[in-house]
Computed example of a mutant assay.
Amino acid sequence: MRSRSRVWGGTAAVVLGGLLAAGCGGGAAERNGTADDGAGKAVSGEYPVSVTDCKGAGTTFTKAPERIVTSNASSLELLLRLGAGDKVTGTGFPPGKGTLPGALDAEAQKVKVLSRAVIPKEKLLGSGADLYIDTFAGMSMGGGMGDTPSEEEFQAAGIKHIYLKSTACAAQSRSAVTDLSAVEADITALGRVTGTSGKAKELVAAMKEKVGAVQRAVGGAARSARPTYFFFDYDAGTKQPTVTCNRQVANAVITLAGARNVFADCDGDYKQVGWEDVIAKNPDWIQLGIRNRGSEAANKEAFDEAEKWLKSNSATKGLKAVEEGHFLRIGSEQTTIAGVENADTVETIAKALYPGKVG
């Protein structure tokens, strides 16, 4: 099966980003008699708020959504971190028990599971949601799950449909992605849409602080002296590797950690290559990209499988990183999908590649 992050549809939908707060004179919070509660969970936000899609077309929110459905665990986690979890009425691709940190896990387990995979079209349209947050574009994957609703069908059902722009628009980016500004913009925009701007600012500030510390520690290293790095997307299949190119969030994570993505010369988000291309790059480090299996034990088993494959395959066992055991066991989601944990992954990679330099 193709990785779902590579399944794209034709119709452009509204994407987080390009926020425009309308109005003049006093702030909307002042006009509406509302304010942030100081803990990041605003009792209301400044409305109306507009967001745009990849082509600049926009939609407007005149108030905070009250019934949100998320396409998968990534957008669900962002809402939980923002303090808007009580507005989530359902999700697809739910997080396994214990896979989210701390109290977020207990909150996540209370969310109704509409599907273990892509939410079927009729179930989504009949969910009663007023907002659907889609991590990826066009997720029609067959298997009896139904087609992705058209934008006209979303409108008829009273559902506003938005994407995480740093993921959904990645392939259309005009330049290489080397920082987390697009991810931070997603978090900021989602905070504005849900009336949780205070918490969004806190999350973004913490990300900037963590990445800034890494940059101060390793950012001075000459590019030619930085270790080369290959993100091995094991779940995308081993017959023909799917690599992360320079428009993907992973390229920014790798770059900020002080490494060189060996496929940074590939314009786009993902690309299928041959193992001969990976051999020619001969990376210093390999990240075992595994999607969360729902438990620590299952994740370990998957990481073990990926490492064993690299060590036993005739095409890869001679790679420098394989011979030296330079493997990083870091999940795919926190590397390739927009989220607070992108900053954590930057730090984790940097600690492995520059031992003693990163605190």
Rank of each mutant, 00 (worst) to 15 (best):
A297K: 15
Q287C: 03
A302M: 11
V322F: 03
E301V: 09
V262P: 01
L328C: 06
V322E: 01
K271S: 08
A280K: 08
R291E: 11
K317A: 10
A298M: 06
N299V: 13
N261A: 12
S332H: 10
S332N: 09
T316P: 08
K311I: 07
N292D: 15
W275I: 12
Q287N: 15
F263L: 04
A298L: 10
N313F: 09
A302Q: 14
F303V: 12
S332A: 14
E333W: 11
K320R: 11
P283Q: 12
D267K: 12
F263E: 01
Q272H: 06
D267C: 02
L310W: 02
A264L: 06
A315I: 00
S314H: 13
D267A: 13
K311D: 08
K311S: 14
V262K: 00
N292K: 11
G258M: 04
I279W: 03
H326F: 02
I330W: 04
D265Q: 12
S295C: 12
Q287T: 05
D284Q: 02
A264P: 03
K281M: 01
F263P: 04
I337V: 15
K300S: 11
G325L: 02
W309C: 09
A280I: 02
A264T: 10
F303S: 10
T316N: 06
S332P: 05
Q287S: 09
A338E: 10
I279E: 00
Y270F: 14
